[in-house]
Nucleic acid binder design. Structure first.
Length: 340
DNA sequence: AGAATACCTCAGCA
DNA sequence: ATGCTGAGGTATT
C-alpha cells in the first residue's frame, strides 16, 4: 500500500513542521529517516513532508477525502503568520529583537480537544520525552488500531469511554504514568458519567475563554497552566498565554513583569498572562510560542558555545616550557561516549 | 488567603 | 557505580 502524495503550496516561513511538531504542543508525531512525519489521527495515518515551497501530504487509507481539510484545520492554515508577526514586532521591541525579524514558521496547532486535555494532564511537572512516551502508550493500549505503515503500527488516540474504567488507573501506573494515572482515569470517568462524552470538551470551543477555562479546572489534574494550554492549543483561545516556569522567567527577566511576586502564585500567574495579552493582542498565545522557541534556541546556542570554546582553548603560542606544567588545561571533553 | 510539601518516573549528571 | 536533581504543575495541608 503506497500512499498517494499531494501537496499544498506553503512557504516554510508560514509553517515549519520540524519545529512545530516537536516544540511541546503535540506529542504523538514521529519522524523517520527521510524526514517524513506521521501520526494516527481520527481514523487515518497522516503523512507529511515539507520543503521550502510545499507541504506534501498523504494519508492511509487512501480513500480519505477529508485529509486536506484535516491538515488545513490542524495547522490553522487560514491564519497567516506573516500578518501577525508584523503586529507583534511593531508592538514589542524585545520580541522583534529576539526573533531577528525572521519568520520561523512557528504557529499554534488546532488539536483535538479531548486529546489535548489528556496530553496536558500528562505534561504536569514532566518533560517532553516522557510526555510523548505516555501519550503514545495511551494510544497503543487503549486506542483503535488504524494501519501498519513501514513496519509501524498506528493507533487513534482513545476516546474517554476507553479510559473511564476503574481498572485504567492501575494499568497506567504500570505503564509509568505515576500519579497522573488517576488524573487521566478520573477525568475520563467524569466526562463520561457527568457530561456524556468527548463532545462536551469539543463544545468548549464555542464558549468564551474564561468560561471554557472554568470548565476545564473542574477536572482533577487540571490547574491554571494545563487549562490554558488546552484553551490555546485545542479550543481556539488564541489570546491565551499559558504561564509555565519558563514563561514566568522570561516575563520577569525580559519584561520586568510581576517583579513583586516571589513565586508563581495565582495573582502572579494572571498578571503575567494578562500583561502579554495586553501587549501582543488577540493572538498573544501565538506570539508566546514564537518567543518561547526563540528563547530555547538561544539557550541551545549558549550551550553549544560552551561546548566548543571550553574543552579546547585556542592553543596559545608556547612561551618557554611553561606549558608543560599546565596539562590539566587540555583536559579532554568528559563526554566521550562510553559504551558497554 | 498564601505558602510549603508530597507526588511518580526517568534521564542526565556527578 | 549509586545518588541526586529537575522536568513547560497540581492537590493537599
Amino acid at each position: 500500500m503506497k500512499p498517494i502524495w499531494r501537496k499544498i503550496a506553503l512557504d516554510s516561513r508560514e509553517l515549519r513542521i520540524s519545529t512545530v511538531l516537536r516544540c511541546g504542543q503535540s506529542f504523538r508525531w514521529r519522524e523517520n529517516e527521510e524526514g517524513v512525519w506521521s501520526v494516527g489521527y481520527k481514523g487515518r495515518v497522516v503523512l507529511l513532508q515539507q520543503d521550502d515551497k510545499n507541504l506534501h501530504y498523504a494519508s492511509l487509507p487512501e480513500d480519505d477525502v477529508d485529509i486536506k481539510d484535516v491538515i488545513d484545520d490542524y495547522f490553522n492554515l487560514k491564519t497567516s503568520l506573516k500578518d501577525l508577526y508584523a503586529v507583534w514586532a511593531e508592538k514589542d521591541a524585545h520580541f522583534k529583537k529576539m526573533t531577528l525579524n525572521q519568520l520561523a514558521g512557528i504557529r499554534i496547532l488546532r488539536q483535538d480537544p479531548w486529546e489535548t486535555l489528556c496530553s496536558f494532564i500528562c505534561s504536569s511537572n514532566n518533560n517532553i520525552k516522557r510526555i510523548s512516551q505516555m501519550v503514545e502508550n495511551l494510544s497503543i493500549h487503549y486506542g483503535d488500531f488504524i494501519a501498519n505503515y513501514n513496519g509501524v503500527d498506528y493507533y487513534d488516540f482513545p476516546s474517554p469511554d476507553k479510559l473511564a474504567d476503574k481498572t485504567v488507573e492501575g494499568k497506567l501506573r504500570d505503564l509509568g504514568f505515576g500519579y497522573r494515572a488517576k488524573y487521566i482515569q478520573r477525568t475520563a470517568e467524569v466526562i463520561m458519567s457527568k457530561y456524556g462524552g468527548r463532545k462536551y470538551v469539543e463544545e468548549l470551543r464555542q464558549k468564551p475563554y474564561l468560561e471554557a477555562r472554568e470548565a476545564l479546572l473542574e477536572f482533577t489534574g487540571v490547574g491554571p497552566k494545563v487549562a490554558d494550554c488546552v484553551c490555546l492549543m485545542g479550543l481556539d483561545k488564541n489570546e491565551v498565554v499559558p504561564v509555565d516556569t519558563h514563561v514566568w522567567q522570561i516575563a520577569q527577566r525580559d519584561y520586568k513583569v510581576a517583579k513583586k511576586y516571589k513565586a508563581l502564585n495565582k495573582a502572579a500567574y494572571e498578571e503575567v498572562r494578562d500583561h502579554f495579552k495586553f501587549l501582543w493582542g488577540d493572538y498573544a498565545g501565538w506570539a508566546h510560542s514564537v518567543l518561547f522557541t526563540a528563547d530555547l534556541n538561544l539557550e541551545e546556542q549558549e550551550v553549544k558555545k560552551e561546548e566548543i570554546t571550553d574543552p579546547l582553548p585556542a592553543p596559545k603560542p608556547t612561551i618557554g616550557i611553561k606549558r608543560e606544567l599546565d596539562e590539566p588545561v587540555l583536559d579532554l571533553p568528559t563526554k566521550i561516549p562510553v559504551k558497554g
